[in-house]
Nucleic acid binder design. Structure first.
Lengths: 250, 250
DNA sequence: GAGTGGTCTAGACCACTCA
DNA sequence: GAGTGGTCTAGACCACTCC
């Protein structure tokens, strides 16, 4: 039976998410040609045993992911593979790499508690000279040093380099230990010349072009808890999907 | 009366959009403190004369815009101004500038029809050597040359530099003339050294760091119709808001 | 326990596309 | 005119937070 609704083991997962997962799987399995039409919302509703609004909720989720798109009066269609391959994620640079089949890694240089500078305290909305955790790392891709990353974190406690090494992921460690979850980031990117520090860590000449990416990361309650500066060598690329603003009316 | 529902002149605008517009206006007018709580969905539903699902649809729209955020069991809250100020738009670089109060402009260098190279024909999904429109421009900010932009467009017809000058916006011109609407873009950014061409147009030394941004722009039916390369000088910054993927479950 | 957001339904009407 | 997505409703139940 195909119906998802009357399935006892629903794992607490919302029905519309299960519907979306089912459709996502069908699409990714290659069952559809690019731009081919899905069953209509009413048909899916009957086939999957969910109301039409629930099916629509699943389709809107897939739309935001870039897997499908809808046109009024025509139908809902499978997005071309190139579009589907792009998904936006918070930790853009490293997750992006994984999707392309590269092996991202990190070398932890320092984990220390330092007093916040005026600039840092400003963006993190704390008083100057309050202690913040400074984490400096080198990002690697297939073993090659491709960038440096320096984070300043306003947290209710501490952790060591060993903790971070064991956890593997900075955000994972912070979520586990402090129940702070990264939901959103404000990013800024630009191109700058490498300084002596960058040059030494990344084995490039001073003055070589470097991609500088700054980020302020926000918790669920929209409190900034991290300021982060990443510097990547020239061969590295950052890729993202950009949607037209829904508010746009011009 | 506050009710939006029984308002004769609804302009064909959906009710949930009008509800969102009303709330957006209240929020932007500064009527709320940062992180203060909005009325509950049930109260808003009563006050505005819309069903609760319609109010929720408006709130989800504002959530995606970054204006509010919701927490189960607690309420819906106004996002801090720094988060609200960030809105994602398709033509990121120039719209972004406008929001910051800078005056963006352009100098049109060339508008010509050229045969597509193999690389261009690949991304635009056309046969090699089919004619494409090449548009090269200089982007300015407050009169200063801050970047170059070279677009290759697969279109069903032509236009002249004068047409573009008159229209002001490339996407506006294409929408008016060919009914092709940009809905989505796949972007890639990196840092490179300036070549002789960049150096001459942007008045910087050869080898200076330049922000290279490539984009493939898609129409409503997810057909790629533009490949675009933008090169910005070091002082320019690109800013965006990044959401955690809704699919994420780790 | 009261109040909040999260999900879900069954049915209705509208706007649009396409034959 | 048949079929599609877009919107909207009234009501229901659940999961969660906070007192």
């Amino acid at each position: 039976m195909n119906r998802l609704a009357d399935n006892g083991e629903n794992d607490g997962e919302a029905l519309y998410r299960r519907v979306a997962a089912r459709l996502r799987q069908e699409i990714e399995s290659g069952a559809f040609e690019a731009n081919s039409m899905l069953a209509s919302e009413r048909d899916l509703s009957l086939k999957l045993g969910a109301s039409r609004e629930t099916v629509r909720k699943a389709l809107r989720l897939l739309d935001r992911e870039g897997a499908v798109y809808s046109e009024q009066g025509r139908g809902t269609f499978v997005a071309p593979p190139a579009v589907r391959a792009m998904a936006r994620v918070l930790d853009g640079f490293s997750s992006d790499a994984k999707r392309r089949g590269d092996k991202p890694g990190q070398i932890i240089l320092t984990v220390e508690v330092v007093p916040a500078s005026i600039a840092i305290s400003g963006v993190l909305e704390i008083e100057p000279r309050r202690p913040v955790t400074r984490v400096k790392r080198i990002r690697t891709l297939n073993g090659q040093h491709i960038g440096t990353q320096e984070s300043f974190l306003a947290l209710p406690g501490q952790f060591s380099a060993g903790d971070l090494q064991a956890a593997g992921s900075l955000y994972g460690l912070i979520a586990d230990r402090f129940s702070i979850f990264a939901t959103e980031g404000l990013e800024s990117v630009g191109s700058v010349a490498a300084n002596a520090d960058d040059a030494a860590l990344l084995s490039i000449p001073i003055g070589a072009p470097v991609l500088l990416c700054e980020r302020v990361t926000l918790s669920g309650r929209r409190q900034p808890f991290e300021y982060c500066e990443m510097r990547y060598i020239s061969s590295y690329r950052y890729t993202a999907r950009i949607n037209r603003s829904e508010q746009a009316r011009s």
